Amino acid sequence: MNWQASPSAPRRPLRVAPPAHERQGLALGLLGVAIFALTLPMTRLAVGTPAAPQMSGLFIAMGRAAVAGLLSLALLRATRAPLPRRGDWLPLAATALGVVFGFPLLTSIAMRHVEAVHASVIVGLLPLATAAVGAVLHRQRPSAGFWACAAIGAALVVAFALLRSGTQGLAIGPADLLLLAAMLCAAMGYGFGGQLSQRMRADAVICWALAFSLPLTVPLAWAGRPAVAVPAAAWLAFGYLAVFSMWLGFFAWYRALALGGTVRVSQVQLVQPVLSMLFAIALLGESPDAATMGFGLAVIATVFIGKRMPVHAAH
């Protein structure tokens, strides 16, 4: 008996599971996003409001980088990490410009004038910007389905942020422009940092970027130090920003970009604004509602579908 299938019989496409390193990259990316999700609410606590100012934006941004830089020096010495190669210095400078100076400074200044929920309207577009930078740097060509999922996810995030922001909407003010510039800085820092993580340890990437920045971050932090007593809650928020947002979070994030690819892993960031809003509810006293859970589940579903869309290497 001939058991061979008929040539005319349709063949079912095989479903190939993502490689183990890609799954690990997505898991680490989610860990990094969870750490970063507290950044905006913690910055709001540390910087205060126009009516009740706490620390200056300059001190929060440069102070957290200075603390993380000193921790980085200790870790680099303890692990006897080799100096970066000559060809890595320029990407390290671009990484530092984006995530050590640009994003922290711009967001710290902006967050005194807008709530964390409103800030997510702009920062919610970060996955698309990161994917675009990653596609250029890593010569990747995402499929149309991948970009469609990314766009839908970003639209969901923006729609939810608009719903939570009430009457503020998308009126472009100075703080919004600062947040937009911060988002672009973060995308650049993520892209170049992810590229470096392909040939350096992920922790070494952020540690060297922070260590090289110390000659600037330390004196700038000292210049912006608080002149009056600051509540303990603001110092605790500053401590989180220094140790987790500026340091440990990047250990997981850059390793995730190296394992799973910048274009694909960047889409995990779509969950970050939703998590930030949930944290803002707990820390800033906002009331939860059904829309929070509904949009959160919708965004997570979009990420789940989008990470299965093909991403090809450009020829």
Rank of each mutant, 00 (worst) to 15 (best):
F238R: 03
A242I: 05
H113G: 08
A186N: 10
A252R: 00
P84K: 09
A242P: 04
G69W: 03
A74M: 15
I305W: 13
T262E: 08
V133I: 12
V117C: 01
A34E: 02
L45K: 06
F101S: 06
A27C: 10
A229T: 13
R199A: 12
G69K: 04
G261I: 00
T262Y: 03
A129E: 02
T39V: 11
R112Q: 15
F295K: 08
R308F: 11
Q195C: 06
A116L: 00
V16L: 14
P288Y: 09
F279D: 04
R85N: 11
G261C: 04
G134I: 02
G87K: 08
V47N: 01
A52T: 14
I35E: 00
V117R: 09
L14N: 05
G249A: 06
S165Q: 07
P84V: 08
T49P: 06
Q54D: 07
G69S: 09
L236R: 07
H118K: 14
I300E: 08
P310S: 07
V274Y: 05
A148T: 13
P310H: 07
C149Q: 09
Y190Q: 05
Y254W: 05
L216C: 08
V157N: 02
L40R: 01
V303D: 01
P310G: 06
S165C: 05
A68C: 06
F244T: 02
V205Q: 08
G224R: 09
S143Y: 03
A290L: 15
A61W: 00
W3A: 15
L297M: 13
R141G: 03
V133K: 00
E22C: 06
V268L: 11
A301T: 09
A221Q: 09
P13Y: 08
W208V: 07
F103T: 05
H315E: 14
G261D: 03
S143K: 03
P215F: 13
A78L: 15
V271S: 10
L14I: 11
A135N: 01
L14T: 13
L178M: 13
A131L: 04
R255A: 11
L26A: 10
V33I: 12
A291P: 05
V268H: 01
I300L: 15
G224D: 11
I122A: 12
A148V: 10
L83N: 12
P41C: 10
S6L: 15
A144E: 06
A211D: 03
P310I: 04
V16A: 12
P91D: 12
G296S: 11
L220K: 05
L58G: 02
S8M: 12
P288S: 10
H312D: 12
G25K: 05
A211F: 05
I122P: 00
A159N: 05
V133Y: 00
Y254V: 01
F192T: 08
M188D: 01
P13W: 08
